[in-house]
């Protein structure tokens, strides 16, 4: 790594550009992971809300979306029980309250995982900023515009 930009040679500039591209790609992968985690978290929150609402419902009648903005009126036969996917292609029947507890645990885990990934993104962002700063100084010195990192930031 370069400590003094005044002494940077072209090979080091090339290396900095390479690091910048790699970190850019890493950031994109981490951002995709974070989006996926957030999506799963929101889905689980929605499921908890639905189960709680069904428990309080008198007749268990709901509108079920079938796509294209169309919905059909259906009656939940057994609002007290729900099938929960526990991963590895296995689905288990649980009582609604057990399912809510399970989903809330999953939300807590996803929250923690999301924070971890967000922390990693911040760390990589710091490195990207530092390398960009050095690279910019190098290109300014050589009178050329810096190339943006591959993979977005």
């Amino acid at each position: 790594m370069v400590n003094n930009v005044d002494q940077v040679d072209p090979r080091e500039a090339q290396m900095l550009q390479m690091y910048l591209n790699e970190y850019g790609q890493q950031m994109e992968i981490l951002s995709q992971q974070l989006n996926l985690i957030e999506q799963q978290r929101l889905e689980s929150l929605g499921a908890v809300e639905t189960l709680q609402a069904l428990e309080q419902s008198d007749d268990g009648e709901v509108l079920l979306p079938i796509g294209g903005g169309a919905v059909v009126r259906v009656k939940v036969l057994d609002p007290g029980h729900v099938m929960v996917n526990i991963g590895a292609d296995v689905v288990v029947e649980r009582t609604s309250s057990d399912a809510v507890e399970y989903l809330q645990d999953r939300i807590t885990e996803l929250d923690a995982l999301g924070k971890k990934v967000a922390g990693s993104i911040e760390q990589v962002r710091g490195q990207v900023n530092e390398i960009s700063r050095r690279l910019e100084a190098v290109y300014r010195q050589r009178g050329q515009p810096p190339r943006p990192a591959q993979g977005g930031q």
């Binding site: 099938m83 590895a88 292609d89 296995v90 689905v91 288990v92 029947e93 649980r94 399970y102």
Partner: peptide
């Protein structure tokens, strides 16, 4: 995949013996 399967085994441990379990 192993982590996911181990997690499923763990979760199945909390389920009653006569519970309805489905597999793909």
């Amino acid at each position: 995949t192993v982590r996911e399967a181990k997690r499923a085994v763990e979760d199945l441990g909390d389920v009653a013996e006569d519970a309805n379990v489905y597999m793909s």
